[in-house]
């Protein structure tokens, strides 16, 4: 189903703007995930967590 690229949706955004915003949301989530992964690795090695 292809969307009209210029249609403004209830949120006030067009599809292109929504996808542009969501790309940033995904990038930010990945950065958060990277730091969380690093913290868990450090906790695994330097703390009694998981024996």
């Amino acid at each position: 189903m292809n969307y009209d690229p210029d249609k403004v949706w209830p949120s006030g955004l067009t599809l292109r703007e929504a996808e542009e915003l969501h790309r940033h949301i995904i990038d930010g989530t990945r950065v958060f995930g990277f730091f969380a992964l690093l913290a868990h690795i450090l906790a695994y090695f330097y703390s009694p967590w998981l024996g």
């Binding site: 949706w9 949120s11 955004l13 599809l15 929504a18 915003l21």
Partner: peptide, 9 residues
């Protein structure tokens, strides 16, 4: 991404 067509950012 289409959630932002419905949810205001």
């Amino acid at each position: 991404a289409k959630m932002w067509l419905v949810v205001k950012p």
